[in-house]
Simulated scan of single mutants.
Amino acid sequence: MAKPLILITNDDGITAPGLRALVSFMKDLGDVIVVAPDSPQSGMGHAITLDSTLYSKKMKVDLSNANIVEYSCSGTPADCVKLALQELLDRKPDICVSGINHGSNSSINVIYSGTMSAAIEAGIEGIPAIGFSLCDYSWDADFSHAENHIIKIVLEALKNGIPKGVVLNVNIPKIKQKELRGIKICRQAKANWKEKFDKRTNPMGKDYYWLTGEFELLDKGDDTDEWALANGYISVVPTQFDLTAHHVIQDINNWNLNEH
C-alpha cells in the first residue's frame, strides 16, 4: 500500500522552527510535501491573492531529509494550499497539517489565524486537516514536549478520518513535558481582544499607529480550550467552516421581511 501523503504548510514561513519541527514529526508517518509561504504571513486569516501574481519555488530547507519535497510560495497560507492542490501535487493528500504556529490560536484567535485558515482551505476541499499551535511566540520555542501527542493525533486522524466540514484546532501549552497532563477535546472559549492603538508621529509629522491590546477571557467554563491550556492539557477543538447560525434561522424567519 502507498504511504499516506501528508501536506504541510504554515503561516510563519517555510524556514520557521515550528514548521521544521512538524516536518521532523511527520517524516516517518508518510510521504511529506511542504508548501509554505516564503515569508511570515501571521494574522492573514483566509486572505487569498487576487490582484498580483503568485510565485512558487522548489527548494530544500532541510538537507537531512532528502525525500521530502518542498516549495516556497509568495502568497498567503490559503494560497499555499490552493496552489499545492491545483498545481504542485500529483495526487490528493491524505491529510493536511498546518503549523506548528509560534503563538496561540485558541479561542477567538482562530478567526485571525493564517495557520488555521490553511487547514480550513484543505478542509473545504474535503481533505482531513489539522492546525497545530504552541502558546509560545518565541522563535526559539521548544516543540519537543508535544511530539508524541502530535504524532498520535495525526495517526488517529488518518485511521478514523475527520468528519466532513470539520477541521481540528490543536493548541499546545508552553510547559515542560513532565507537566503535560494529556489531551482534552474542548469547545472554543468565549473571549475577545480589548484593543488599543498606540498613536505616534514620524519625523515628517505624519501620524501612524501600532495595534496593541489585551486578551479578555469571558468564559469560566471548564470545558474550553482556554481552561485546558491553563491546566496543562493540549486542547483539541473541532472547528466548522459552515458559519451559518442554524439555531436562529427560525427567529429571523419570524421577521416581517416580505411584507410590502
Rank of each mutant, 00 (worst) to 15 (best):
C96Q: 12
A119D: 14
Y55E: 14
H246I: 03
L85E: 13
P203Q: 13
A84K: 01
G221S: 13
M44V: 11
K206T: 15
K92Y: 04
P238V: 03
I252Q: 06
Y112P: 01
D223E: 13
A157E: 15
G43F: 00
K178V: 11
G213W: 08
D223M: 09
S235H: 06
S39W: 02
G30S: 06
S106K: 13
S56T: 11
L180N: 15
S42M: 10
E87Q: 14
S133K: 04
L257P: 14
D223H: 09
G45K: 09
A47W: 01
P17A: 11
K92P: 07
R20G: 00
L22P: 04
T224A: 11
F215K: 14
L50H: 07
K220G: 12
G18V: 02
A16F: 01
N67S: 15
E179W: 00
G75K: 00
C96W: 06
C186F: 01
L158Q: 08
P37H: 08
N109I: 00
I127M: 03
A2W: 07
S138I: 09
I124R: 14
L180R: 09
A119W: 02
P93H: 06
G205F: 02
M204A: 12
V167G: 02
Q86P: 03
K190M: 12
G30F: 01
T15N: 08
N101G: 06
P4E: 04
A189H: 06
L243V: 05
F215C: 10
D38R: 15
D222V: 06
A141W: 04
K184V: 12
K82R: 14
